[in-house]
């Protein structure tokens, strides 16, 4: 009997401890948010700076926190205003080239008015005679032709060559960012289409034969969109780099469906226009 009550008590205590720990974590997070908000406000900043003459321990800590907050805010401001920001990284590998100096590039991507996780490209200088850059690490998806762009704009010098080829970091970054944004826009188009057709939530009952039931990306670069209608027609849409639809075809059960193809796509046009037509044809 006694042991049973003990177990029950221990369980209750354990629950209580877990609950309290949760509270502590929540409060700590709250405290952090409040602290950073207070320290970031201009009046409090000026207050801290004014009282910086008194060299108490607390004051030093406050100043340090203020400095950290200021640099962080500056970094955030740069990241908000510039789509590409650079930073310095130290390669922890003891055998790293160039004493582990690495130039990091941060490419911001946005989707539906939110910042996504940025893409990173790390460059180092492995050549002793030249200060040429080379891609060291990156977090880009395979759809971005990084290798091709690097070969075009950051050509590697050859040791026998007297004057190495010129590297154009600026152009490299520009074209790379362009490719990233294009890729994300293409991804966004198919996501928009899916959302507009109401495919993100599964509904079984209201499937008319003319409605599109499936929208998918069909290739690596997200340049092709695969469409499936409820009556087993399927179509393929091909766009070029700039989002212009170049090819569009619909196949029915018995061969090509020229009518639907013509009604949706009669001349080269923007992907957005085709998406609009698809929406109308699917909902009507």
């Amino acid at each position: 009997m006694a042991s049973e009550t003990n177990v029950v008590e221990a369980d209750a205590l354990g629950d209580e401890i877990a609950e309290l720990e949760e509270q502590i974590a929540a409060t700590k997070k709250q405290l952090k948010i409040q602290a950073s908000t207070i320290i970031a406000s201009i009046p409090s900043q000026s207050l801290v700076k004014e009282s910086s003459r008194s060299r108490s321990k607390n004051n030093k800590k406050l100043l340090k926190g203020l400095q950290g907050q200021e640099t962080h805010q500056q970094q955030c401001l740069h990241r908000i205003c510039n789509p590409v920001t650079a930073f310095k990284v130290h390669d922890p590998d003891p055998n790293a080239v160039d004493d582990g100096h690495v130039l990091g590039l941060r490419f911001e991507v946005m989707s539906r008015s939110q910042f996504l996780k940025p893409y990173y490209v790390m460059l180092n200088r492995p050549y002793s005679k030249f200060s040429a850059l080379r891609v060291h690490r990156h977090t880009l998806p395979s759809a971005i032709p990084l290798a091709g762009l690097a070969a075009r704009h950051l050509p590697a010098p050859k040791p026998e060559d007297g004057n190495p080829p010129l590297q154009d970091l600026d152009q490299f970054v520009r074209t790379l960012r362009r490719e990233i944004i294009r890729y994300h826009n293409r991804l966004g188009i198919s996501a928009d289409l899916r959302r507009a057709l109401g495919l993100h939530q599964v509904t079984e009952e209201d499937t008319e034969p003319t409605s599109i039931v499936e929208v998918g990306i069909a290739d690596i670069e997200a340049k092709q969109i695969k469409l499936t209608w409820a009556d087993e027609r399927h179509g393929r849409l091909v766009m070029d780099d700039d989002g212009k639809v170049t090819k569009f075809s619909v196949f029915g059960v018995d061969g090509r469906d020229w009518e639907t193809t013509k009604s949706l796509f009669d001349r080269p046009q923007r992907i957005e226009e085709v998406v609009e037509k698809l929406k109308q044809s699917s909902t009507s």
């Binding site: 962080h72 939110q114 996780k117 990173y120």
Partner: peptide, 17 residues
């Protein structure tokens, strides 16, 4: 740490990471 999808640092987040 740069490729981890969970570690999302938005520049609009004013909190010190």
């Amino acid at each position: 740490i740069y490729s981890d999808e969970k570690n999302k640092q938005s520049p609009l987040d004013a909190m010190l990471p």
